[in-house]
Amino acid sequence: MAHSTLLTTGHRAKPVTQTVRAAVASVREDLDAAMQRDPATTSRLEMALASPGLHAIWVHRFAHRMWQRGGRWRLPARLMSQAARIATGVEIHPGAQIGKRFFIDHGMGVVIGETAEVGDDVMLYHGVTLGGRSLDRVKRHPTIGNRVTIGAGARLLGPVTVGEEAQIGANAVVVRDVPSYSVAVGVPAKVRSSQPVASQPDPYADPALFI
């Protein structure tokens, strides 16, 4: 009987160990990605202690796991997201799906709605809203592809799709889909370029893109 218990205990401990290792690896990924994108920070320790954007996403990942469990876990998930909002100025609904190496620079004023979907290696600046235009319980928030950059103060409203490696200019208001590898600026946002950003002579030549 004791031998069986040990086996059972060991079997249960393994997933916990794997979960902890995965969480540590994810934190390191986030820190490395943040270091690459923030020239004002000189160390992982400084980034870990002084980045509200990272604090917000770390809390969100935990709250999102709770939200996925449903039932009685959803209220604590919402309360956790509200605590993060108070502490960081970043509001992320626990239902939002966010990919790897996500980074919010400065953080203050960012709002991400319940049905938003964000890919890997996405970067947001302060004041960005991924909001909805419907009161129905449907997919009502944006879908953001991989490696997208969204400038300060931009508003993306409704179930729009932003393709991979697109750039959204500062203060743009996006209410229509944005193709991959393009640059969108203005109110309402218009696509200024549909060629890969890497091939453009100066993708930030337009003042509306300054972030």
Rank of each mutant, 00 (worst) to 15 (best):
W73D: 01
V185G: 00
P201H: 15
A208H: 07
D121P: 02
A33M: 10
G107F: 14
V187S: 05
E117H: 14
R37K: 06
I86R: 15
T129H: 11
T5G: 02
T19N: 11
G163A: 06
W67A: 08
R74I: 01
L75N: 02
M108I: 05
P52T: 01
D32P: 02
G132M: 07
L209S: 13
D38I: 08
R140C: 01
A170D: 05
I144C: 02
R44V: 06
H3P: 00
L156G: 00
L49H: 06
K190M: 08
V90N: 04
S43I: 13
E164G: 06
V122I: 05
G109H: 15
T41K: 13
L124E: 05
P207N: 12
V27I: 05
N146L: 11
H106V: 01
S81R: 11
V59M: 15
V59D: 03
G70F: 13
I104S: 02
D206V: 12
A23G: 08
M35Q: 10
I86K: 15
G131P: 00
G132L: 06
M35Y: 14
R140K: 05
I98R: 09
R176V: 03
T9S: 06
S182E: 07
R137S: 02
A116N: 01
F62I: 14
S193V: 08
I168G: 03
W67F: 14
R101P: 00
Y181H: 12
T161N: 07
V110D: 08
P76R: 13
T41G: 09
R21C: 10
N146P: 02
E91W: 10
M108R: 13
H106T: 04
T161M: 05
K139F: 05
V173T: 03
I168D: 00
E165P: 02
R72G: 08
G132C: 02
I92P: 03
A172T: 02
A208C: 00
G89W: 07
T19D: 14
Y204A: 08
D38V: 05
Y125M: 08
R101V: 02
T41M: 12
M80H: 10
V128I: 12
P142F: 14
P142K: 11
Q18A: 13
H11P: 03
R192H: 03
T19S: 15
A198T: 08
I112H: 12
S26D: 09
R61M: 05
M47W: 14
G89V: 06
V197K: 11
T5D: 00
V175P: 01
V183H: 13
S26V: 01
G186V: 02
E91A: 12
A22T: 01
G53L: 08
A96I: 03
G89N: 00
A170H: 04
M35R: 15
A170F: 13
I98G: 00
Q97D: 06
R21L: 04
R137N: 04
V197W: 15
L7Y: 10
S26E: 08
G132W: 11
H60P: 01
S43L: 09
Q68D: 04
M35N: 11
M108N: 06
T41W: 11
V197L: 15
